[in-house]
């Protein structure tokens, strides 16, 4: 294809996006658009799958049958989101196995928040409330992103995430109103998850490399700092409501901005975890790679069985 023709196609493509039309898998798209979407959607899918581990850690120890059932259902939803997102990503011409390979080799990233350990039951509440809360803030704008399969996946994912968030908040509420030991457990979880949750919304705008291009493609509709502010403004009153304290001495309502001012985020910690040196990076990867490797013989068997069945069918037909 001539350079001129490509430029022409690109111009038409950008116009379609500007008109809020959806781009579908079979449509022509610039290679960079394809690659950016593979990167972001696979990262999102990986986050769902790795995100099953910290919560899965408490399934066998959930404190009541009701909580156990809810937690199982939640982690199952996350697996479902992963499956859905991998499938949406496959429409861009990459296989699920290739995406796994990128995750296992460290080439593809997943949300850093899942590299923190879940050490008490209250962490199940904090993750639902804060981590899913931050995820929703990130994802709601994506329901109208330009790539059709991703936008449609996000509509469904957001509905379930918002249910998870309420469920997490309800766990915290119960603890906060419970025995002193339970309230301490809730406060301790908030203390540990607050700052990593703020980091989840990404580096500050000045340091964010992908923002401008992503804005144009509607992969991003608000800047990281705006999203973070929205999350803080939404979450602080919820903490007040259940009598827990946000672990930030600089947190203060700003009458003029009609928003909360907040303290400095420890970006050194953020980059340390992103680069693979958080408290659980090694464990999470070991769990994923371990499941994949120890499951190889199972997947091989399923493949061999299906081939045999196919052969038998063909023989019968003859």
């Amino acid at each position: 294809m001539s350079e001129e023709k490509i430029k022409n196609l690109e111009a038409q493509f950008e116009e379609r996006i500007a008109r809020d039309e959806k781009i579908e898998p079979k449509d022509w798209m610039p290679e960079k658009y394809r690659q950016t979407h593979i990167r972001q959607m696979s990262q999102h899918a990986h986050s769902e799958i790795v995100g099953m581990l910290p919560e899965g850690n408490w399934i066998t120890r959930a404190p009541s049958l009701r909580r156990k059932v809810a937690l199982l259902a939640k982690v199952q939803d996350e697996a479902g989101h992963g499956l859905y997102l991998y499938s949406a990503c496959e429409t861009l011409g990459i296989s699920r196995d290739e995406m796994y390979e990128q995750l296992h080799s460290g080439k593809a990233k997943y949300s850093s928040i899942f590299n923190y350990p879940t050490v008490t039951w209250a962490d199940m509440g904090a993750i639902g409330w804060l981590v899913d809360g931050a995820a929703i803030i990130n994802q709601v704008p994506l329901c109208s992103t330009s790539f059709g399969p991703y936008a449609r996946a996000m509509v469904r994912v957001c509905k379930e995430e918002s249910f998870h968030q309420r469920q997490g908040f309800e766990i915290m509420l119960k603890l906060a109103n419970g025995a002193p030991e339970q309230k301490d457990m809730a406060q301790d979880a908030l203390n540990r998850w607050w700052w990593p949750s703020l980091m989840m919304l990404g580096p500050t705008d000045a340091e964010s490399v992908h923002t401008e291009q992503s804005m144009k493609w509607k992969l991003k509709r608000k800047s990281n700092d705006d999203l973070r502010q929205q999350f803080i403004d939404q979450t602080v009153p919820q903490a007040d409501l259940i009598g827990l304290t946000i672990p930030d001495p600089d947190l203060k309502w700003n009458e003029e901005r009609q928003s909360y001012d907040f303290g400095e985020i420890n970006w050194d910690e953020f980059w340390q975890v992103v680069k693979g040196h958080g408290p659980c990076n090694k464990e999470r990867m070991a769990a994923r790679v371990g499941a994949w490797e120890s499951g190889e013989w199972v997947r091989d068997a399923a493949m061999a069985y299906s081939e045999k069945q196919q052969e038998r069918k063909e023989k019968q037909a003859v």
Partner: peptide, 18 residues
């Protein structure tokens, strides 16, 4: 429930959790 997140494939993981 011990297996959630550690299955040989995403599909079997979902099924065992279910």
């Amino acid at each position: 429930g011990e297996l959630t997140g550690h299955g040989p494939s995403l599909e079997t993981d979902i099924a065992c959790t279910n």
